[in-house]
Amino acid sequence: MSFVRAYLRASTDEQDASRARAQLEAFASERGLRIASWYVENESGSKLVRPDLFRLLRDAQPDDILLVEQVDRLSRLTSADWEKLKAEIAARHIRVVALDLPTSWIMATQSADEFTGRMFEAINGMLLDMLAAVARKDYEDRRRRQAQGQARAKAEGKYRGRPADLKRHKAIADMLNRGMSWQAVMDAAGCSRTMVAAVSKTLSPVD
């Protein structure tokens, strides 16, 4: 029996990784599918190593569906890293379905005959590669524009860096001081393990 495993990602702790949850639920419901498990994380799509994505891959069984809102939620990777991720997905025989890739939708139902299914799989693979390449280019373009803006601001003496979310950091610190586990803090604050670790380092040791 196939399971639908939904993957939600945002790049930073300030962004809501669960933003697209309702869209994925609606997509699945319209096709008579039920999302069996959710994997949510705040990590850059340019990083190959993402704990929750690879937890999904470890949990998945052959023929399971990896459901994402957009291909760029899955990958903003370099070509080499994208090939590694694709190989991992292929080795586990997982079907990737993305809301912004209509050719992948047929993978969610398996209603096509063998020939049509293979044709759509080939077309889907090609378009998946194309959207992954576009996502990477968009990432690199934004990074370049950001660097240019920061360089100009520094030259003009206006650059102050990214301000810390002090209110959020204090809330995390309070929870840690109350003895809550890192996972509980992550769930309550909607933040990554990296942020919890950073805040934890600022706390004074308890005698």
Rank of each mutant, 00 (worst) to 15 (best):
V185Y: 05
R73T: 03
V71K: 00
A173I: 04
L66G: 07
S46K: 13
K47F: 14
R162P: 09
S104G: 01
L56I: 07
A36T: 13
T12L: 13
R118N: 13
T103K: 00
E114M: 05
M1E: 13
D52N: 14
E114I: 14
K201S: 10
K167S: 10
D63A: 15
F120L: 07
S75F: 03
M175E: 04
I172D: 02
R144T: 11
M119Y: 04
A135S: 07
V49L: 15
R95M: 08
R145F: 08
Q23R: 15
L48P: 10
E83A: 15
K170E: 13
A189I: 05
F120E: 01
D72M: 09
W82N: 05
Q146V: 13
L8T: 07
A151Q: 10
R142L: 14
T109N: 05
L85H: 04
M180Q: 05
V185I: 06
A17K: 02
Y39T: 00
I106K: 09
D16V: 06
R160W: 05
L56D: 10
T109G: 09
E83K: 11
V4Q: 08
R95A: 14
G190M: 05
K86I: 04
E88R: 09
I172R: 00
I106T: 15
T12C: 08
L57K: 01
Y159P: 02
Q150H: 07
L203Y: 03
D72V: 06
D100W: 06
A133Q: 04
K201G: 03
M186T: 01
D141F: 06
V97D: 05
T103M: 09
V49P: 10
A171I: 02
L99R: 01
R152M: 14
A28T: 11
A122N: 04
V134G: 00
